[in-house]
Design a protein around this nucleic acid. Sequence first.
DNA 1: ATGGTAATGGACATTATGTTCCGTATCTGA
DNA 2: TCAGATACGGAACATAATGTCCATTACCAT
Lengths: 183, 183
Amino acid sequence: MDRRQRKTRNAIFQAFSALLETKRYSAITVQDIIDAADVGRSTFYAHFDTKEELLRAMCDDIFEHVFSDEVMREPEHDFSSADSFRDRITHILCHLQEKQHHIKGIFAGECGEIFMKYLREYLREVFDRQLPEDRPEDGAIPRDYRLNHAVSAFAEGVRWWFGGHGEYTPEQISTFFFGTVDC
Amino acid sequence: MDRRQRKTRNAIFQAFSALLETKRYSAITVQDIIDAADVGRSTFYAHFDTKEELLRAMCDDIFEHVFSDEVMREPEHDFSSADSFRDRITHILCHLQEKQHHIKGIFAGECGEIFMKYLREYLREVFDRQLPEDRPEDGAIPRDYRLNHAVSAFAEGVRWWFGGHGEYTPEQISTFFFGTVDC
DNA sequence: ATGGTAATGGACATTATGTTCCGTATCTGA
DNA sequence: TCAGATACGGAACATAATGTCCATTACCAT
């Protein structure tokens, strides 16, 4: 990737992130962004078609970092043991915490809902590997329901964490989750 | 309320609801709405300040119906017994199902996230009465975390239900939830 | 019925959007 | 080092949406 591209892309991310802490997402115009980033109008549109795509790109940037563990890529890892799954979850929480400065701005506004949607998509993959198959004692509860249940509860737990409960450590949040979830 | 007001308000709701099934929420303009509802521009703004407020009003309309049970209003009812709580939840699910035609349009678009937010607010009140106080065996898990966990899991369960799993009855969804949640 | 009240419709200025152009600055490969 | 390629900046543009204004009309209560 061209250094010039990286520079402007970064400037736009930076500006957008800063703007999100001062005003609502839908109130932010492309004009605001290019003013803050100090780039030309055409430059912005050369990088992103819309404001929504910019947000999507920022989220992807964050998730790329949070979920791109070597441990995740390697298929030989065994995620069926509860311990390694718990480690993985704690790991994700740690990475999220590292990026908290970027995330908090996103969560603050109404676009937190959009961030959550993407987060759930990524989490679903992780949880899908872990969730046990249907057992007789689960009765008629569909596996897909249980998967959705666990993913949603965890994702909203993250939002709860960032929304005024930042005093807890990733390990504690992990403990809260595994102490409450039933999967 | 003036009959004229009711009429226009209804026409706008109707038009907006219909539009939501054909295009994305953010792609819908005020112009689209007043064209479809066949009302004047100033009429729209006399009723709602923004498109967002219209959505909020529509959601409130729905929730007014879903949550306005006499059983909820009367404080003498005892929600501490698990059975009555389960009845209450099933009741809510039934009411949601009645309104499914309106809700499905909202869920379809990106404004589903906004609907979910309001839904969680209403649910939080209901769950708050039910969730037991912190018990020793819960260890250090904050009550607020458990509350958020249960509310989120249930709300997302509703979305799951409306998003392609409409074949289940309210009673079944209720069973799924109480079979999975741990509160 | 009638006067007051409030909804209505259409016109308006304002603002944001997304595109296009061209000159300039920067990068890359030979 | 040089030349071709690529990204940037700035300005101007047509288009479209926004929110406000005011005169008109329909409704409501007395």
